[in-house]
Computed example of a mutant assay.
Amino acid sequence: MKHLVDLDEGALAAAQEHLGTKTIKDTVNAALNLATGRTLSGDTIDAALDVWSTMDLPDREDMWR
């Protein structure tokens, strides 16, 4: 089902950054799922993993020292 809504562009951009989503649809659905405590979809999890894969994380060996 499609809905026509006016969105706060600043809030949308912040939500996309926070959730790691790229499209408006993915962002709104992820935010709704998060707000309701529902399990995230496979697409949302894939999007989050894509974000993690590009992050420069510290070396595990250095973390335990």
Rank of each mutant, 00 (worst) to 15 (best):
K2I: 01
K2W: 08
K2Y: 11
H3C: 09
H3E: 14
L4K: 05
L4Y: 11
V5N: 08
V5T: 15
D6F: 09
D6C: 02
D6W: 15
D6S: 04
A11H: 12
L12H: 07
A14P: 13
A15F: 09
Q16M: 08
H18F: 12
H18M: 03
G20K: 11
T21Q: 13
T21H: 10
T21S: 07
K22Y: 13
K22W: 15
T23A: 07
I24G: 05
I24P: 08
K25L: 15
D26C: 11
V28D: 14
N29R: 13
A31F: 15
L32M: 03
L32Y: 06
L34T: 06
A35F: 15
A35W: 04
T36P: 00
T36Q: 04
G37F: 04
R38P: 02
T39H: 11
T39K: 12
L40F: 08
L40W: 07
L40M: 06
S41H: 12
G42T: 14
D43Q: 12
T44S: 01
T44C: 00
I45V: 08
D46L: 10
D46K: 12
A47E: 10
A47K: 03
A47Y: 00
A47T: 02
A48P: 01
L49P: 01
D50Y: 05
V51M: 02
V51Q: 04
V51R: 10
W52R: 00
S53F: 01
T54H: 07
M55G: 00
M55C: 01
M55Y: 00
D56A: 08
L57I: 00
P58F: 04
R60I: 02
R60Y: 11
D62N: 04
M63A: 01
M63I: 10
M63E: 14
M63Y: 00
W64G: 05
W64H: 00
R65E: 08
R65Y: 06
